[in-house]
């Protein structure tokens, strides 16, 4: 990898200054994606490990997670929030050697359709906190997913999980070849005052969150048309038809429960 400059700013002011001075930069969190890039078009790396974006805390029932919190941190935190769903999802984010360094912020910002965290955060209606030299911006995950390119170059500092799902018992299914392999399909159902919401990730081009209605034909009339509208992904893990079958199976498993 040809990198000309490597910086580790000590605070946000220094980060913003370096970002402005080096427009062709890549932000490095854990680095597990960046280091794997074969032919990176990157002149400068800005390592954000010293910016204090660590820590997990609860405030009025909301959970605040620093963008540089690793998956191991999330597992070891043993959060009871939403039936321990955050730790459960984190435990699948690669083998232990990856989870020890890969961060939740890095995973979100890497933007791969198969990320474990994006559907999780969409299901939880999380808010992403970004900072730039013009200030702080709170962005719902749904908006981030819809317009990802808008947030390129901004620094994700933390993620807020709302208190409304604090005591929810989740339904979570993940289909992958092995426990820590990249998922073929993620299926999450969360209940709130408005009803049940289904979130499907990895199988589709973008994660999808949809409200369940107690309709016998919900799968055929609502869920599958919506997923097909977003498009099932055609990749190494399977053809769209295969992924649709996995989602149908996950849906039926939820219904049987």
């Amino acid at each position: 990898m040809k990198v000309k400059k490597y910086f580790r700013p000590r605070d946000l002011n220094e980060f913003h200054r370096l970002s402005a001075e080096n427009p062709d930069h890549k932000i490095l969190a854990g680095g597990t994606y960046v280091a794997k890039m074969k032919f990176p078009k990157v002149d400068t790396i800005i390592d954000i490990q010293d910016l204090g974006l660590k820590g997990i805390k609860e405030e009025n029932g909301d959970i605040h997670i620093g963008a540089n919190v690793t998956f191991t941190d999330l597992i070891e935190a043993e959060l009871s929030y939403c039936g321990g769903l955050v730790g459960q999802v984190s435990s699948h984010c690669g083998p232990i050697t990856i989870r020890n360094i890969a961060t939740i912020g890095g995973n979100v910002m890497a933007g791969y359709h198969w990320n474990d965290t994006t559907p999780l955060l969409l299901a939880l209606e999380a808010t992403l906190m970004f900072t730039s030299d013009s200030g702080v911006k709170a962005v719902p995950v749904s908006s981030f997913i819809a317009n990802r390119s808008t947030y390129t170059g901004l620094l994700l500092t933390s993620i807020i999980l709302p208190s409304k799902y604090k005591d929810t018992k989740p339904f979570y299914k993940r289909f992958a070849r092995t426990r820590s392999d990249i998922p073929t399909s993620i299926f999450i159902v969360l209940n709130s005052e408005e009803g049940d919401h289904i979130t499907v990730g990895s199988a589709t081009v973008k994660p999808v969150r949809i409200m369940y209605s107690a309709d016998d034909e919900f799968l055929i009339n609502t869920l599958l048309p919506r997923l097909n509208e977003v498009k099932f992904m055609d990749d190494l893990r399977g053809k769209p038809e295969f992924k649709e079958k996995i989602v149908i199976s996950q849906y039926r498993e939820w219904k049987e429960k």
Partner: peptide, 28 residues
């Protein structure tokens, strides 16, 4: 060289990591 095999593993601050996936600057 892609963080899959663990042959390059080292311990940093008590945690096992793949040294092939880490920039030297991260270890500073």
């Amino acid at each position: 060289s892609t963080g899959d095999c663990g042959s390059c593993a080292v311990i940093i601050n008590g945690k096992l990591v793949n040294s092939c996936l880490i920039f030297a600057g991260q270890a500073d």
